[in-house]
Design a protein around this nucleic acid. Structure first.
Lengths: 346, 346
DNA sequence: AAGTTTCAGTCAACCGGTTTCCTCAGACGG
DNA sequence: CCGTCTGAGGAAACCGGTTGACTGAAACTT
């Protein structure tokens, strides 16, 4: 006898607990504008539990309350960085009673679509946006509507809704490591211009290179991809006129994918890692440990970035004033085989 | 004067078109059980267009109609394979008027949570499940509820709802390639037992190895991860008692990550790729081209898998009978530097 | 003892669509 | 000329919650 598992409705719970719909709703939502006896409260929770009651999200949304859902917009799912962020966001959202949805925003092309599908159709209460570039079409749509949102990883100047990590510190950590090993000429592979973490890393790199008195600190930009790493690395490693050895002994990249590309480029030039060129990447993900040689990285607190962003967004949804947030966890150096002193065997 | 962009409602459209809510609803949903003059139909569409009308998803869902949303459950977002599938699913869903959401299902742990959040709360009309293992808790929940769903990439025997690729063919393609190069002893790194594509690839590998008359065709299993590839590779490459050379001259792996791990293991043993050991992986994703050496792969039609699964699911939601589906696109060999004849320099 | 608070919850109107059953006008048939 | 049928569209119930206004009883004041 396959029981038809009819969804329990609010009225069913009410009936079972011997109270009215209104009471059940208020009790379950923990509203404090209602006074109930502890005994009644208990009965309600019990009834809901026994019936396996779950409110219908559509009905809730319709009744003017919230959908209890958020959406995280990322520029590229294939980038595992965002996967880690998404996990953090999902978990924290759950703990706060929200569902975090994930949407890929193919560089603006689909931003409007996603925005419409999610926000306009009333499926989510707020957005976590990791894909905002200056001039991104989404920014318009956002300012036009009044949807709560935060920017993460990218920051939008003056928005007062940026959730970021201490990206500058990651450059300092990486550079200190290379300097300690004896490197005096280090190249930086930056991300595309206009993207906050990319710019900040570059500035911090240049500033700290001056502070350390490096003899050379050239920078080349490339996409946050393997290919971007390849071309930037080739640019940085090209010997000066008449020279035969590359002008730097180490490379520090803004993303993990760039580091992978850079390593490939180094090898293509017939150079060895780390004997001829050391490489340090950003973002510590499993693949870093399986490269050849294993890649030294700066581990960024990606998971925490996700959780912090959700906390900020939920606070905003609940009407609290927003401000920029910086994740307190510091970047941490993960030492592997891709770095050694110049000319040294590891 | 910042205009408050009040969401246009059904009744607004009705008013503007000079008809009733009911008519608008029927016209916009393209119901054929209603007869309207072309002229009226035009006016309705025009009014909706001008007001930028978008139905409130919650209200629709509540009124008994569909939510026009699907969810894709994947076991590991970090695996870029699923990203490609997800893109295919998203695009096709959009074309069919649906929104495809993405949820990670950490190997069953969160399956119930996701299921509840998405299905029980009435947020989606159906599920695309790429994470079903035998005994997966989700399978229970599915059979208890009556939610339309399809399985993709994994198949559940006898469900009649499996959407798959020609996985057996991928083994044949890879093996033919290695055989053509002159390899007579090839090892296969399979995925975990119990997972369909893993089993099918293994069976096809063994069968075709017999057909080709290979002298050795050992198999080792490992997770679909880099680590899984490492340990399986070490197992396959261990020289026989008293021997000094590995017993195989080529490795064929069930996933891309395994191939990356296998390559690392080969190098750790002091062997060269492809001179000493050739490696072929499955699933052609950008990273494959940036490994050292670039990895020869069998490109599986992942995007098409996503689109086909959505088509099947939407058909099911609309009440059409379901059946297993195999994506017609054949696996395709992508030749790169990780394969050569045994002992040959590429 | 009568009036005023406070407590503990209830009533009923909404939210924005969908759907079923009607109605009304004109065409058609006899 | 009257009844019926058909095409075109409308009225209202309903989906399952939420919410602010309201009520009845008990407790507290003066």
């Amino acid at each position: 006898m396959p029981e038809q598992p009819v969804r329990a409705k609010l009225v069913d719970v009410a009936e079972r607990a011997g109270v009215s719909k209104a009471t059940v709703s208020k009790v379950l939502n923990g509203r404090q504008d209602l006074s109930v006896r502890p005994e009644t409260r208990r009965r309600v929770h019990e009834a809901a539990e026994e019936l396996g009651y779950r409110p219908h999200s559509g009905a809730r949304a319709l009744a003017g309350a919230s959908t209890h859902a958020l959406a995280l917009l990322v520029p590229a799912l294939a980038n595992p960085t965002y996967v880690t962020i998404a996990r953090g966001a999902y978990q924290r959202a759950r703990e706060l009673g929200y569902l975090s949805l994930l949407a890929e925003d193919f560089d603006g092309q689909e931003a409007d679509e996603s925005f419409n599908d999610l926000v306009q159709d009333g499926r989510v209460d707020g957005l976590l946006i990791a894909s905002a570039r200056p001039g991104h079409p989404l920014l318009d749509a956002l300012s036009r509507s009044r949807v709560p949102h935060v920017f993460l990883n990218r920051s939008v100047a003056g928005s007062g809704r940026n959730v970021t990590m201490d990206v500058a510190r990651s450059s300092i950590t990486a550079l200190d490591h290379l300097h300690d090993l004896g490197h005096r000429a280090v190249g930086h592979i930056a991300g595309p211009p206009g993207i906050t973490p990319s710019e900040v890393r570059k500035e911090a790199f240049l500033r700290h290179a001056r502070e350390l008195g490096l003899s050379a600190a050239p920078v080349a930009s490339g996409d946050f991809t393997e290919d971007g790493g390849v071309s930037a690395a080739l640019e940085l490693l090209r010997p000066a006129d008449g020279g035969t050895r590359p002008p730097v002994t180490a490379l520090y990249t803004s993303s993990l994918a760039q580091a992978i590309g850079a390593m490939a480029a180094v090898r293509d030039l017939g150079l060895r890692i780390p004997e001829d060129v050391s490489v340090v990447g950003n973002d510590d993900l499993p693949v870093a440990g399986h490269l050849s040689p294993p890649l030294t990285t700066v581990a960024m607190p990606l998971y925490e970035l996700g959780t912090a962003a959700v906390e900020a967004l939920v606070a905003a949804i609940q009407g609290q004033p927003m401000g920029d947030v910086v994740v307190p966890t510091e970047p941490r150096l993960v030492l592997r085989g891709s770095t050694a002193g110049p000319g040294e065997t590891p």
